[in-house]
């Protein structure tokens, strides 16, 4: 089996991080390969993740999910990861599906596997979230020239080669679009894989607000053309 690392960016997730780590361990992943990046949380995320047996890195101050994922990826690459998975800390992803998302990488059918909640019928996506996500799909098509069913899904897998090649520079939530932009730009082989996203009261309260997507789009356009 190829050495798989799971990178979890966590910001104030003391309530869910322990279950997430335990869920992944139950699927056979060792704590050594479960990398939680505590992104300057002001709750007990760090302790909870450590107690659960994950490898925990700590950002001294909050820098955003993109920055935290990059830290986790750098660490994983340094420790000879062959496959790197991005996984959410808020319990919305299903640990049982990690084996599905790494499948195309193992089989060498793709270098990046992107989770899609719209390819399977099992995700109960709230209407507003559905609309915002579909707008994201259209935006991505215009911005990067690539048509996917679900562009803003935090569940992905990379081959080592792809992880080395895709350098996230966006610190905050813009990284999701940036990754797709780089896949297109660098002609990386990708695959969409059906995944289920769980919507709970906790995840909806904490999740991204639709209004934030406008800020994200503005920033993406700004950096693409002016940085």
């Amino acid at each position: 089996m190829q050495k798989t690392f799971i990178v979890i960016a966590a910001y104030n997730e003391e309530r869910s991080i322990s279950d997430v780590v335990h869920g992944l361990k139950k699927e056979g992943y060792h704590g050594r390969n479960i990398i939680v990046v505590d992104d300057g949380s002001n709750d007990n995320t760090f302790k909870e993740a450590q107690k659960a047996g994950a490898t925990v890195l700590k950002h001294a101050i909050n820098r955003g999910q993109g920055a935290a994922l990059r830290t986790g990826m750098d660490y994983s690459l340094k420790h000879k990861a062959e496959i790197i998975v991005h996984f959410d800390a808020d319990g919305q992803h299903n640990p049982k599906e990690v084996k599905d998302i790494i499948q195309p990488i193992i089989n060498k059918e793709a270098d990046v596997a992107l989770g899609s909640r719209f390819l399977s019928k099992k995700s109960d996506v709230p209407l507003i979230k559905r609309i915002v996500l579909k707008m994201g799909v259209v935006f991505t098509f215009i911005f990067s020239g690539i048509w996917l069913t679900d562009t803003h899904n935090g569940f992905r897998a990379f081959s080592r080669k792809a992880a080395e090649n895709i350098e996230i520079t966006q610190d905050k939530m813009e990284h999701a679009s940036e990754i797709i932009d780089l896949i297109k730009l660098k002609n990386i082989k990708y695959r969409e894989i059906p995944v289920t996203i769980k919507y709970t009261k906790h995840s909806m309260e904490k999740g991204q607000s639709p209004l934030n997507s406008i800020r994200i789009a503005a920033r993406l356009i700004w950096t693409k053309f002016l940085r």
Binding site: V37, G40, T55, L57, K58, H59, A60, I61, R63, G64, A67, R70, T71, D74, Y75, K78, T169, D171
Partner: peptide
């Protein structure tokens, strides 16, 4: 400046581990 701060924070996180 933001990019530089992130660079430092990320580096410290990995070095400390």
């Amino acid at each position: 400046i933001n990019q530089n701060i992130t660079k430092i924070v990320r580096e410290v996180a990995i070095k400390k581990k």
